[in-house]
Structure formats: C-alpha cells, structure tokens
Write a protein that binds this DNA or RNA. Structure first.
Lengths: 252, 252
DNA sequence: GCAACTGTTCCACAATGCGGAACAAATGCC
DNA sequence: GGCATTTGTTCCGCATTGTGGAACAGTTGC
C-alpha cells in the first residue's frame, strides 16, 4: 500500500519518455511534476543507464539498461533477433541450414532459419509446426521441459511421420533421458526419409528451456561421419551462446 | 551528482532480479539492503508493473512494464517477433509471401518472411541484402529516411539488377517523393524479371522509419489487377499495426 | 513439537527528497 | 545586433518521505 513516491515518479518519467525523447521542461509538463524534480530524477536515471541524454544537446531518451532488464524479463521474446547472427556463423561453418524453434504444444514451431544456399537443400519450415517427437529440436525441447509438461506431452500416443519415426512412449522416454544427459539430440530420417538433424537447447536465466537451435541437411551428405562430433559441438556451443545473450549478457 | 537514493535502490533490486526470480530475503541479501526496505520497494515496483509476483507464492520476477519500456527504448530490436503474426495475417489474406526488412546501407536486409506455401513461389531472401532502389521495401525505406541519409544514399550511382531496373537518380528522386506522399511503393519486375512487390513503412514512436513490410509474388499472378488497391491497403494497414506495437502499445 | 526460515507490518526518527526561486545558457524574434 | 522568452541547472530551508530495527505472523522441515 505505502508506495515509494520517488520510484513511482521515476517510472512516470520513463513512461513519458516512451512516446519519444524530450527535454526536461517537456517531461515536466507531461508528468505534471516540478522541473527541478524531473531534473533530479533524470540525472539519477542517467547514472543508472535507464535514460540516455543525447550527446551535446539536452534531450533525454530511454536507455540500454531497460533493454537489458527486459531481455531478462521476457526471455525468448527476442530469441529470433539474438539467434540470427549465431545461426549465420553455424551456416558459415557447417554449410548446412540452421534454424531456431520453440515448443508449441506437442510440436515445434520453427521461428527462423538461415539458409546455406546449397544447390540441394531442404524446404524451409519457418513458420510451420512439426511434431516434436520426430525432430531433433522437438526431442531437445521435450527433454528439458519440466516434469509436468513432459508428462502431459507423453500422455497421448504419438503418430509416425515416416517409416523410421519412433512412436513407442517407452522408447521416447528413454531417449529423452539420454538427450537430457548429453545436452543435444540427433534424429536420423525420423521426420522424413533423407533428412537428418541435430539440435541443442537454449535456456533462459532461470534455467528453463525456451527454444532449440538446430542444423539439418540431406542424409546423403549430412552429417559427414568424420565431422559428426565437431558438428554436435558447434551446435551445442551456439545454443549456449544464444542462451547467454538471451539472459541479457552483452558480450557476443 | 545528487542522486535519488530510492530510485537507485529500486533499480538495484531490478538488476538483482535479472539473474532470476527470488523472494524478499534473497533479494535483500543480493542487494545488501534491509529486508523491510526491499519489501517496500518491491511493493511499489509491483504496483507499477516493473515487477510481478508469481501467483500464490511469494517470489518476484521482472514484469511487463520493462518490456514495454524497452520496446520504446530500442524500437526495431524486436520488430521481427512483433511482425510475425501480422505477416501471417497478410499471408492468410493475400496468399502470397510476406516479409519484413530493414535498411542496411544502400540495401535492404530481409529479416524475416512468412511463406504462403504456394506451389510456385519466390526464393526466400531472408538474411540477404538487396539493393534498395530495385525493391519496394528499399524504396519505402529510402523515401522515409531523413534528408541527410537520403542524400547520402543518392550520392553514388545505382546499378541495374535487370532490364527494368530504374537507376537514373532524378527518376529515383521523383519516385521517392511520390512514395513518401502515398505511404507505399510498388516495384514491377525491377529486381528480377517476373517478380512484383509492394511495401509500406514501419515507424518507431519518434516517427523515424525502422523497417518495411512487404508482400511479393510472381508477376503472372501478382498483383491481381482487380485487387491491387485492396492489396496495397492491406500492406499499409499491417505496417501501421506493427508500428503501433513496436511503439509499445499492447493492443493488436 | 521447536527451530529456523520465510514475508509483512509498525512506528519514531531524521535523512532524504522536495520544489520554489534564483541563476545561467540557448534559442527566437523583431 | 540586442531584447525577450525559452531552455536546463543549481541552491537551500523545510517537512514530507523514506528508512530500518524490531516485533509479528505464516511456512517449511527436522
């Protein structure tokens, strides 16, 4: 009940800035606070980094601190923009398509993909949902979900997508355990003949999975048996980097 | 110099929450503040919406207000995630691919695309950069850039991408003027033969362009001459909606 | 059951934030 | 150019406001 006035006012100032940058007087007007009070609040907000004053001139705008905080507040909401450069790195390294997906019920929704531009390539699943149990991303996302969520997903029977799809719940549970232990998952022609993929989990700062990074390619060339471990490591490392940045860290 | 103590402490509390949700006691420990002070600050932060207390239990996490503020702080940083559902709506309506791009020098960088899934479709340019003067998104982005930026972009000569590309600076300037007046741009087989596209601008709260929404398709069926106006309106309306949400508004 | 935790509330004290007013520095206007 | 009106910044006495110890009230777990 007893609220801290200065904090309320500070946020009132921040809100007033969200419609656009302004100077002290204008902010004072928008917030109906005395100029001197606004000036004081602004100076502390600048110290903190919640507000930035545009170089030389004296107009104020919202600052980086808020972005960092919001990244921690809604982890995953910006997972696409954060992932993209890292997906690009993966593609450059492995020369196969890389993507990022999130859990959608018992499926994986593919948010984004970076194309390797090979002559023979898989069709782009961005924006579509695929049953989780037949793709590596899906296995990763299920494996690292909470026990309740996992139980809910395992409650109903699974459908096969092709000949080699695994649908036996017991087999799937055993598999999820090993995925959880390993920190990654491979699927070999389980969604469709001729398609293999690896995936690794992206976590938010609290340790919950929020997405999965994957690389996939045509089975006749992916994975190159000599590079399989290297590929796995690259995907796991990329997912770990994205996790870090999703958590608000600024280093790449 | 003279900083407002309670505001500093409030942000100290917020920062301590960015590593993960916690209860009053733990936050007090992390921030080295008295418990009662933390409890008071938390209660006001909850009022404001900068902090949310998890239902029933008494642990606190960062709240929605921070996301809204950061959306205004770094407009465009989350343009992809905001755009996606609206792109999907466009695709559902028009049955052609829709995407979002941003300015990158004198080019357009395609951030994201939603596929209509037609049998005949254009290749996906997501993650690539295309010269701004040959695509509708590019024209829109140039048209609504600041005068200095526009002048800089017009300083060097333009290269043709195909037969119908327009490269004459005077013609381009005239065109940009009409785009600015209309609020949208069409390009007809100017990037490549057989490809047409429309685009409309996305603005941040200060009124600067931060991106463009486009729809494109094969020239033999897009745009349907009878629906051309309807298509244009749909794209313009979608871009306006995205602008609104980018600015922090919560209504769809 | 007590013990060791939680989070919440109270209240006397004064430190802290307040805001009017006076100042300084741009900008605008004839 | 100089006068006028705006801007942002600083000062300082006043009291409102925030402070934090301590006492209280729920939880959890030996």
């Amino acid at each position: 009940m007893s609220a801290v006035q200065s904090v309320q006012r500070a946020f009132s100032v921040l809100r007033s800035l969200s419609v656009g940058p302004a100077g002290v007087s204008e902010i004072a007007e928008r917030t109906e606070l005395p100029k001197s009070t606004v000036a004081r609040l602004l100076s502390t907000l600048v110290d903190i980094g919640a507000v930035e004053q545009s170089d030389s001139a004296s107009t104020y705008g919202l600052g980086e601190t808020l972005v960092e905080l919001s990244a921690a507040a809604a982890p995953g909401r910006n997972i696409v923009s954060i992932s993209r450069p890292h997906l690009q790195d993966l593609v450059d390294l492995l020369e196969e398509d890389a993507g990022v997906g999130v859990l959608d019920g018992r499926g994986v929704y593919y948010l984004d993909q970076v194309n390797a531009g090979q002559e023979v390539q898989l069709r782009d699943w961005t924006g579509e949902t695929v049953d989780a149990h037949v793709v590596s991303s899906g296995l990763v996302l299920m494996a690292f979900s909470s026990d309740e969520e996992q139980a809910a997903m395992l409650a109903d029977p699974f459908s096969p997508w092709c000949e080699r799809s695994i649908t036996d719940p017991v087999a799937i549970i055993r598999r999820l355990e090993s995925v959880r232990r390993d920190g990654f998952a491979w699927t070999m022609e389980e969604m469709a003949e001729g398609i293999n993929s690896v995936a690794a989990p992206v976590f938010d700062p609290t340790g919950s999975v929020i997405g999965a990074i994957h690389v996939h390619g045509p089975a006749y060339r992916f994975p190159d048996p000599d590079r399989r471990d290297a590929i796995t490591r690259a995907v796991v490392r990329t997912a770990a980097r994205v996790s870090k940045r999703v958590a608000g860290s600024l280093e790449p």
